[in-house]
Amino acid sequence: MNKKLAMMGLGVAVGSMMLVTSVYAGVGDAPGYETFKSAFKQTAAVENVTRQVNVSLQDNGVSLLNVKSTIKSDQSGRAGSAEVKVKNGKEEQTIHFYSQDGKQIVKTADSDVYKVIEAQPGNGKFKALEGANHTPDPATIQEVENVVDALVGNLKNYVTMDQKSGKGKEIHFKLSGSQISPVVNTIGSLIIKHGTQENGQRPIPAKADTLGVDVSTLKNSLPQLANDIKMDAVEVNATIDGDNHITNQTAQIHISGKDVQGVNHDVVLSVDMTLSSLNSTTPDTVDLNGKKVENVKFDQQSRKH
Rank of each mutant, 00 (worst) to 15 (best):
N157V: 12
G153K: 08
K156V: 05
K127P: 01
P182H: 02
I141E: 02
G124D: 12
E143I: 00
G166R: 02
Y158V: 13
A119G: 09
S181G: 06
N133H: 13
N146G: 06
E130A: 08
S178G: 07
Q163P: 07
E130R: 08
K169P: 00
L155T: 08
S165K: 15
L129E: 01
D137P: 01
K115R: 10
K169T: 09
V184A: 11
V113H: 02
P121D: 12
A150G: 12
Y158G: 07
S111T: 03
E170V: 13
E145K: 06
P136K: 00
A119W: 02
N123P: 09
L151W: 05
H172K: 15
A139R: 00
T160L: 02
Q120T: 14
E170R: 15
E118I: 11
S176T: 10
E130N: 11
K115S: 07
T160Q: 06
K125Y: 10
N157I: 13
A132P: 00
L155D: 08
S178F: 09
A132Y: 09
V183E: 09
I187Q: 10
V152R: 15
E118F: 07
P182R: 03
P121Q: 14
P138I: 00
E145Q: 11
D162W: 08
K156H: 08
E145H: 09
K156I: 06
V113M: 02
S176H: 13
D149I: 11
L151E: 13
P136D: 00
Q120F: 14
G177Y: 05
G131H: 11
L175Q: 14
V113S: 01
F126M: 12
M161R: 06
L175W: 05
N154C: 10
K125S: 15
H134I: 09
A119M: 10
T140V: 06
T186W: 02
G131K: 09
E170C: 02
G188W: 02
K115G: 02
N157S: 12
T140L: 02
N154A: 14
E170T: 10
I117G: 03
Y114Q: 04
P121V: 12
I117W: 01
N185R: 13
I180M: 03
K167W: 07
N154E: 14
A132G: 04
D110L: 02
V113I: 07
I117S: 01
T135P: 00
S165L: 13
L129H: 03
N157G: 14
L155V: 08
E170K: 15
L151S: 12
S189C: 02
G166D: 03
A128R: 05
I180E: 01
